[in-house]
Design a binder for these strands. Sequence first.
DNA 1: TATGGACCTTGTAGTCGCTACAGGGTCAAG
DNA 2: CTTGACCCTGTAGCGACTACAAGGTCCATA
Lengths: 129, 129
Amino acid sequence: MNIGELARAADTKPETVRYYERIGLLPAPPRTAGNYRDYSAAHVRRLVFMRRARDLGFSIEQVRALLDLADQQDRSCDAVDVIARAHLAEVARKLADLDALRRELESLIGQCRHGTIAECRILEALAPG
Amino acid sequence: MNIGELARAADTKPETVRYYERIGLLPAPPRTAGNYRDYSAAHVRRLVFMRRARDLGFSIEQVRALLDLADQQDRSCDAVDVIARAHLAEVARKLADLDALRRELESLIGQCRHGTIAECRILEALAPG
DNA sequence: TATGGACCTTGTAGTCGCTACAGGGTCAAG
DNA sequence: CTTGACCCTGTAGCGACTACAAGGTCCATA
């Protein structure tokens, strides 16, 4: 299986796959006679896992930690729980920030009286004083 | 007023101020005999405006557009409204995405049975099919 | 007057997670 | 045998800063 097929199987792109190999996240596969990367089903599984975790907003370093843990089958899975909870806390924080931001923008926009720039309430709200 | 004082007045850092000058967002001020940047109250107003807009999540290019508009006092402020509304739409979209993400993470975490990695529901949920 | 330390100057490189080339090589179909 | 779709490597770019390094300036204190 070449890099394009692997990428399609994980709904990503060859550039991203090469990037993951370069940063040591996806093991380098054997090469064909023509120097093409030659992937197996295990690579597909690993890449799909990575893409799914990335889509859920885990950072590359968190993904690396999750993959490392996944390789140690007999350890307690509490470490996985810790990573997931830390990420959830971060997401919750961002949600709160973004919601406050939305309210502030809505208030800003609600003040627009469609006059001239000189009397623009939105710009006034952004300006000091 | 030197760069450190300006930065403190706008609750930011000298590096950021120099960055804004480099990308043409904050006009280069005159220099003192010792080659220090010498800022006026107008610079403070502009930088505070920029930081406030950035804190509200406007991109640098949006801030640039808002500043350009703010300089044209007799134009209609509808263009400002358009920028603000576009940004609000973007924020609302991100909020929805992040909320879906939070729910998915909560569901993932709710499945943790604190056993071994081999039977970890979180890792299973991340793994392919 | 000397000296220390806090500031300022420039330029460059790093962050994150890719993405987009450029300039070549390989492969399968027609 | 040629065409075109893919692959290879290496490097540079994105946004919005941030972090140095190596030097210069300014001001207060000894």
